[in-house]
């Protein structure tokens, strides 16, 4: 039984312009101790999916799913109070913006200890020692003195380490990291990523790593879910996906990696944008940007077909994993 088992999850937002389906029938499973990468452009529904898993969508986000189980417990029917006992304890999350994700009015120590106090009932010296140990584990020097620091007194990288310390405080079985390095300097990005992977291995927790950086996924994930416009475009084990992408979108994303474009005059790009609320095509959602699209692609929506060792949402999966003549779409 997978740790997280989601079947046909959709999230709709009601806005003045109408109802927008940000996540459109995705399946997602994560096994105990597995690292799953979710990649896709901005607006592909990565973050909304993770917020739905955490139960953090506001009242205007409607979550529908056939199944949403965590460790054998049904998240859909669980009362809010029950769910809060899991959230932050068994499932924890690290966000994109470390500088704004910590409360500016409370010390770092308070914010770490709060989680431990609420979920594990710790207090006094034991609580303090746990907090210090956590700061040590996430690589913060002089943890005793850092406890009384406010977030604005720490750098972005340090704040993200604090966020990670809060997330792993109660030994979660699943950690969701939503673009944890996007807001950081390149050198710090690597450190934070290494830290996440190291903690994941040490603790054997499952990790969902959401990113738009294919390179990050290649280094860390075991399985990859490529999302496009709220749907799963392709899902495969990491090695075969990178060797032989089958969905044209995955192929284009990989071709856009600078290290794969060596010797080319221009870095390949994907023209156009992810369709928004008003301009969703009738057929395949990627068809307006896909050079391989034909009449059928523009008229009919493809389902997720089995390909190789995974699945891809395409009528004409790339045969050899490469775009014709190695060109951009």
């Amino acid at each position: 039984m997978p740790l997280l088992d989601i079947k046909n999850l959709s999230v709709e937002f009601t806005t003045r312009a109408g109802t927008f389906r940000a996540v459109d029938g995705i399946d997602l499973t994560v096994d105990e101790g597995e690292v799953v990468g979710i990649v896709g452009e901005s607006g592909s529904g990565k973050s909304v999916t993770s917020l739905a898993v955490m139960g953090l969508l506001g009242s205007n986000g409607r979550v529908v799913a056939d199944r949403m189980m965590f460790a054998g417990r049904d998240l859909l029917t669980m009362p809010a109070a029950q769910r809060r006992k899991i959230t932050g304890k068994d499932v924890a999350m690290v966000f994109q913006e470390p500088m704004t994700s910590l409360n500016p009015c409370f010390t770092v120590g308070f914010q770490i200890m709060e989680t431990l106090r609420v979920h594990e009932g710790l207090s006094g010296k034991a609580l303090r020692n746990r907090a210090i140990a956590l700061l040590e584990q996430v690589g913060i020097p002089a943890p005793e003195t850092r406890l009384s620091a406010f977030p604005h007194q720490l750098s972005g990288g340090m704040n993200q380490r604090v966020m990670i310390a809060i997330a792993i405080a109660c030994n979660p079985r699943l950690l969701v990291a939503d673009e944890p390095t996007t807001a950081l300097d390149v050198t710090i990005q690597k450190q934070i990523l290494d830290l996440l992977v190291q903690l994941q291995r040490e603790r054997g927790m499952a990790l969902i790593l959401i990113t738009h950086d294919m390179g990050v996924v290649a280094e860390t994930a075991q399985r990859v879910v490529v999302m496009y416009a709220g749907q799963v475009a392709e899902t495969r084990p990491v090695h075969s996906l990178f060797e032989r992408p089958r969905h044209p979108y995955t192929g284009a994303l990989l071709d856009a990696l600078p290290e794969r474009a060596l010797g080319k005059r221009r870095l390949p790009t994907i023209p156009g944008m992810v369709p928004g609320i008003a301009d969703r095509p009738a057929g395949c959602l990627f068809s307006p940007r896909c050079r391989f699209a034909d009449v059928r692609c523009r008229a009919e929506r493809p389902a997720l077909f089995d390909v190789d060792d995974g699945r891809a949402r395409c009528f004409y999966p790339l045969p050899d994993g490469h775009l014709a003549a190695g060109e951009a779409l």
Partner: peptide, 9 residues
């Protein structure tokens, strides 16, 4: 959002 993610009431 972080506070809610901690499972606070």
């Amino acid at each position: 959002r972080t506070a809610r993610a901690k499972g606070l009431a």
